[in-house]
Computed example of a mutant assay.
Amino acid sequence: MRFKDKTVIITGAGSGIGRAAARLFAEEGAQVVASDLSESVHETVAGLGGAVALQMDAGDEADVERLVATACERFGGLDVFFANAGISGGASGIFDSSVDLWAEVLRVNLIGPALAIKHAGPRIVERGGGTILCTASVAGLRSGAGGPAYSASKAGVINLVQTAAQQLSTSNVRVNAICPGLIETGMTQRAFDYAREMGKEDKLGRLNPLRRAGAPEEIARVALFLASDEASYVNGQAWVVDGGLSSSHPVTRQEFGKPAF
């Protein structure tokens, strides 16, 4: 019960990492406010006791203000904000991407977490401290893991948490990012479904040393740790959870127990 009597907001909780996190935080005693643009967020909180579901746009300032206000009015304050909502923006290259696509990806993926920090930070300070988590991506570390707009937005998230950690100095509010690799979520579901239809599910995640894709729960467990007092000295960091994908530049990978060439 690491989060007993703690209030936790999770965006993008209608599926995938956000849904898994909502359930894990609730199991640890948290008062969860789960939000998503999709009505599926109501399914997430079903069976989670007093958890609250709210449909909202994570990149809209009025909606973020309403989300924080709802959590504080319902539970008396805020301890953790997990800014997890995001969109992929598709696979268009730099020369094929419209300004509108770039604007929308940056609005949700980067401005959204900035709004979370702006409006949640002061309320968490009022509680004497807590945690803000943002979902970034291995695509924010280097090229090759996402489209240009998505990758740039996630690189921005990594710098954002570093900057926010500095600006929240002495407040006892820690700000960190999680950088998932290939995870089966609502955003990647089409690729997973296609691979299964083609009988190639075993090819998913084959570029990392574990040779598999990750599960939402594997990211949610890291979020749970980073938000807990067990991570009390972790601040301004980007934690990579990718099966080892980012440990190497792309190469012809060696098979375990076999010569490299």
Rank of each mutant, 00 (worst) to 15 (best):
L110T: 08
T131K: 10
A136G: 11
L141H: 12
A71L: 07
E197I: 15
V108L: 05
T188I: 05
S15G: 07
C134H: 11
L226R: 03
A195P: 08
I10H: 02
L106A: 05
G181V: 05
A152H: 01
W239D: 00
A71K: 10
E43I: 04
I183V: 15
E28L: 11
V68A: 01
G146R: 00
R19L: 08
L168G: 01
F192W: 13
S92R: 13
E39R: 00
K203A: 15
E39G: 06
V64A: 03
E197Q: 15
D63Q: 09
G14C: 02
D242M: 13
R127E: 05
I117D: 12
R2T: 08
A62Y: 12
C134I: 07
M187D: 02
G214P: 14
S143Q: 13
T44C: 00
G181A: 09
G199L: 05
A103I: 01
L160T: 01
V68P: 03
S15E: 11
D63I: 04
S171W: 06
E73S: 10
A69D: 10
A13S: 07
V105G: 06
V251C: 11
I158W: 04
A103W: 01
F3G: 03
M56L: 13
V138H: 05
G156M: 04
I10G: 01
P122A: 14
R127T: 07
A191G: 11
R127C: 03
K203C: 07
S153F: 08
F95E: 15
D202K: 13
A34D: 00
G186D: 04
L141Q: 12
T44R: 02
F256C: 14
L226P: 06
K200Y: 13
N84T: 09
T163L: 10
L24F: 02
I183L: 07
D36C: 09
L141D: 12
R142C: 05
L168D: 00
L210C: 01
A85K: 01
T44W: 00
Q254H: 04
V33K: 00
L207Y: 12
S97K: 04
T44K: 02
N109V: 15
G140H: 13
V33T: 07
A91N: 11
P216M: 12
A191S: 13
G146F: 08
G205T: 09
D193I: 12
P113G: 03
E43D: 08
I94Q: 06
L78F: 03
A231K: 08
A260F: 14
S247K: 15
L224W: 00
E201Y: 05
K203L: 10
E28M: 04
G49A: 01
